[in-house]
Nucleic acid binder design. Structure first.
Length: 247
DNA sequence: TTCCAGGGTGAGT
DNA sequence: ACTCACCATGGA
C-alpha cells in the first residue's frame, strides 16, 4: 500500500482536525480505546483497529490506477511526483460534517481548534450533545448558529442513508442543512461518504484552477473537472490542493 | 490597520 | 444564473 502518512493526516482533511500527534504517531480514541497509526517499514496501527484504519485511509484504493486516470497533464503529473502517497481519507459522516461547517471562511489551525473544542473523550460531540452544550467557549462565531441548526435537523435525518443514494441526490440533501453550500457538501461527500467524483471548490482550488487551467468561475471549473477527471476528480482535487498550498 | 482564511445566505438584478 | 454585503474570529 502506497502511503505518505504525514501528508495524508496533515493536508486539511478531517483527520487533520480530529486526530492528534504523539511523536511520529497519530492517535485518537475510538470507543474509549486509544488507536495509534504510524509508519515502521510500512503502515502500522494499534492491534484490533486494522479494519478501521484501512477504511480511514482508503487502503483498498489502487493509487497507481488513480494516478494513471488523473494524469492528464504536466500539472497533475508534477503534483503526483511531489506528493506521492497522499491519500483521500474517509471519516465518519457526522464528524466530517462538523469539520466542514467549522471550515466556513476559516483557516486550518483555527478549524482544528474549533473541532477539538467540540470533542469529548476523543470523539466529536453527537448532535444531541451539541444541542445541550454551551458552545460559547468554542469561538465558532457565526458558525455556531449553522452547527446548532444542522444538529437539530440531523436528529430527524439518517446520515448513513444519504451515502446510499447517488452523488447528485446526496448533494442536494446535504445542501438543505444550514451552513452547507456546494463546497461544504462536496467536502462531506468526498471525505465523509467516499464519493470520489466530488470536486470541492474553495479559494485555493479556485486559485489553482485559474493559474493552471485558466478556469475561474465555479460552474466552469466543475464542468471541466468532471469531464477531465470524472470518477477520480476528488483525488485530482486533493493533489491540486496540496500543490497550490505548497505543502 | 487591513487583509485573509478549505464559504453560506439572502436580497437584489 | 450572477453579484454583493454581511456574517465573527485570530493570525500575519
Amino acid at each position: 500500500m502506497i502511503i505518505n502518512l504525514r501528508l495524508t493526516m496533515e493536508s486539511g482533511q478531517p483527520p487533520n482536525f480530529i486526530w492528534s500527534k504523539d511523536g511520529d504517531k497519530y492517535f485518537r480514541y475510538i470507543g474509549g480505546e486509544k488507536c495509534y497509526i504510524w509508519e515502521d517499514n510500512g503502515l502500522r496501527s494499534t492491534e484490533g483497529f486494522e479494519d478501521y484504519v484501512l477504511k480511514l485511509l482508503r487502503g483498498n484504493d489502487d493509487l497507481n490506477a488513480v494516478y494513471k486516470k488523473i494524469s492528464t497533464d504536466a500539472v497533475i503529473k508534477q503534483a503526483i511526483k511531489n506528493y506521492r502517497g497522499l491519500r483521500a481519507t474517509l471519516s465518519d459522516p457526522w464528524e466530517t460534517l462538523v469539520c466542514f461547517i467549522c471550515s466556513i471562511n476559516n483557516n486550518i489551525p483555527r478549524i482544528r481548534r474549533n473541532v477539538q473544542s467540540l470533542m469529548r473523550e476523543g470523539r466529536v460531540s453527537t448532535p444531541e450533545e451539541i444541542l445541550r452544550a454551551d458552545l460559547s467557549k468554542c469561538c465558532l462565531g457565526f458558525r455556531e448558529k449553522f452547527l446548532r441548526e444542522t444538529a437539530e435537523l440531523v436528529l430527524s435525518h439518517d446520515l448513513e442513508k444519504i451515502g446510499k443514494t447517488d452523488y447528485k441526490t446526496a448533494k442536494q440533501v446535504l445542501m438543505e442543512f444550514p451552513g452547507v453550500g456546494a463546497k461544504v457538501a462536496d467536502c462531506v461527500l468526498l471525505y465523509g461518504y467516499g464519493f470520489l467524483q466530488a470536486f470541492p471548490i474553495d479559494v485555493w482550488i479556485q486559485r489553482a484552477m485559474e493559474k493552471y487551467y485558466h478556469k475561474k468561475k465555479p460552474t466552469e471549473i466543475r464542468k471541466f473537472a468532471e469531464e477531465r477527471w470524472g470518477s477520480c476528480a476528488g483525488y485530482a482535487n486533493t493533489y491540486l490542493y496540496a500543490a497550490v498550498r505548497g505543502m
